[in-house]
C-alpha cells in the first residue's frame, strides 16, 4: 500500500494530485487546474480546464478575457468527482469574493487546502468554514507572532479621522484591486461614510464585478478627468503601486495611506513612504492561523507559503506534526 497522502505531491509549480492528473493553483498553464481564488499568483490564465467557484471564474474572465469552454463552476459545498476516484469539495475561505478552500478525498483520506484565508468578518465574502480533515494544508503569509491585525473598525476610525484633520488634502488609500479595495469601501460604508468614493482606473471593473455579485459599495466614481479642487477632503482608492507614482500628482496633496497587514511594522510603512498605515489584511494573522489549526485539529499540518518557520515552531511546541512545502511563486507583498 502507498504511504499516507502520497497521492498529493508538492511540485515547484503547485500541488499535484497524482491519480486525478490535476493541479491546485498551478503557476503555469496545465490541462486541469483547481483554483482557490482569483488573485493572480493563484489563478493563472491558459489552463485547458479550470475548476473554481462561479465568482472566481468571473474574476478570471475579467482579468484574462474569455475562459475556455472547459471551465467548470463549483458552488460552495458542491463536490466534483475527478479521475482516479478523487473528490473535490469547495468550502468558503473568507479571503476575497469567491475564495475557497478545497477539500480533497481519496482512499479514505481527507486533505483540506486553504488557499489564502482569514477568519475576520468581511462584508464582501462568505466566511471561512472549519472543515475536519487528516491533512490541513495552510498558508502562512503572516506566520509570525508579531502579526496581530487590530479590529478593522479601529483602522476605519483612523482613516476617517485623517480625512477630518487634513482639510484641503485628500486621503489616498493604496489597496489590492481585488478584495482589499472592496472590503475597505464596504467597511467605510459600514462606518457611516456615504460620500462618493473615488477610484483609480484599475479599480473600476473589479468594483463593478463585486456589485454584480450583490456587494453594495455605495457611490463610486472614477477619478480620471476630475479637477483637483473637487477631490479635496475626498477618499480615493488606488492600487499600491500607484501611491507614489506620477498618477498621484493630479491629486490635492494626498495623505498617503496603505491598507495592508505589513503595515503592522513601522519600518515597512516608512519604506513605502506611507503616512497613514492601515493594518488591514485579507490573510489570517498569527492568532487566526494557530487557532484555526487547533480547531481543525488535523493529524498533519502542511504549510504552503509565507513565514513557515515560525508556524512550524509553534506546531512543534504544541506537539503537532507539521512540514513546510516551500512552494514558490505565491507572493503577497502588497496584502
Amino acid at each position: 500500500m502507498a504511504p499516507p497522502f502520497s497521492w498529493l505531491r508538492p511540485e515547484p509549480q503547485g500541488l499535484y494530485i497524482t491519480p486525478a492528473d490535476a493541479w491546485i493553483d498551478p503557476s503555469r498553464a496545465v490541462d486541469l487546474a483547481l483554483v482557490t481564488h482569483g488573485h493572480a499568483d493563484h489563478a493563472r490564465g491558459g489552463h485547458s480546464t479550470t475548476v473554481a467557484t462561479p465568482e472566481t471564474l468571473a474574476i478570471m474572465a475579467l482579468r484574462y478575457g474569455v475562459i475556455e469552454a472547459g471551465s467548470r463552476a463549483v458552488a460552495y459545498g458542491e463536490t466534483v468527482a475527478l479521475r482516479g476516484d478523487v473528490r473535490a469539495t469547495y468550502v468558503p475561505a473568507g479571503h476575497v469574493l469567491g475564495s475557497a478552500q478545497i477539500l480533497l478525498e481519496h482512499g479514505g483520506e481527507r486533505v483540506v487546502i486553504t488557499g489564502d484565508y482569514k477568519r475576520r468578518a468581511d462584508p464582501t465574502c462568505t466566511p471561512f468554514a472549519v472543515t475536519p480533515c487528516d491533512v490541513f494544508v495552510t498558508e502562512a503569509t503572516f506566520g509570525l507572532p508579531v502579526f496581530r491585525h487590530p479590529p478593522i473598525v479601529d483602522e476605519m476610525a483612523k482613516l476617517l479621522a485623517a480625512r477630518e484633520n487634513d482639510a484641503g488634502r485628500c486621503v489616498l488609500v493604496g489597496a489590492y484591486a481585488l478584495g482589499k479595495a472592496q472590503r475597505v469601501i464596504a467597511e467605510l460604508r459600514a462606518a457611516g461614510y456615504h460620500e462618493t468614493i473615488w477610484l483609480h482606473g484599475a479599480m473600476e471593473k473589479m468594483c463593478r464585478l463585486y456589485e454584480d455579485h450583490g456587494v453594495d459599495l455605495g457611490d463610486l466614481k472614477p477619478v480620471a478627468g476630475v479637477p483637483k479642487a473637487a477631490l479635496e477632503n475626498a477618499i480615493i482608492v488606488c492600487p499600491p503601486s500607484a501611491l507614489n507614482d506620477r498618477w498621484s500628482r493630479r491629486l490635492p496633496d494626498p495623505v498617503t495611506a496603505m491598507a495592508s497587514g505589513w503595515m503592522r511594522v513601522r519600518q515597512r510603512a516608512r519604506q513605502r513612504g506611507v503616512e497613514l498605515p492601515l493594518i488591514i489584511s485579507d490573510h489570517a494573522d498569527w492568532d487566526e492561523l494557530t487557532t484555526t489549526i487547533a480547531q481543525v485539529n488535523p493529524a498533519e499540518t502542511w504549510i504552503t507559503h509565507g513565514r513557515e518557520e515560525a508556524l512550524l515552531r509553534w506546531c512543534e511546541l504544541s506537539q503537532r506534526k507539521a512540514r513546510a512545502l516551500a512552494l514558490v511563486g505565491y507572493e503577497d507583498e502588497d496584502d
Binding site: 509570525l144 507572532p145 508579531v146 511594522v265 513601522r266 519600518q267 513565514r307 518557520e309 515560525a310 515552531r313 509553534w314 511546541l317
Partner: peptide, 14 residues
C-alpha cells in the same frame, strides 16, 4: 519562546 522571538526580531529589525 526563544525561536519565535529570534524569528520575529529578525523580521521586525528593532
Amino acid at each position: 519562546d526563544p525561536v519565535l522571538w529570534t524569528l520575529s526580531r529578525e523580521y521586525v529589525g528593532d
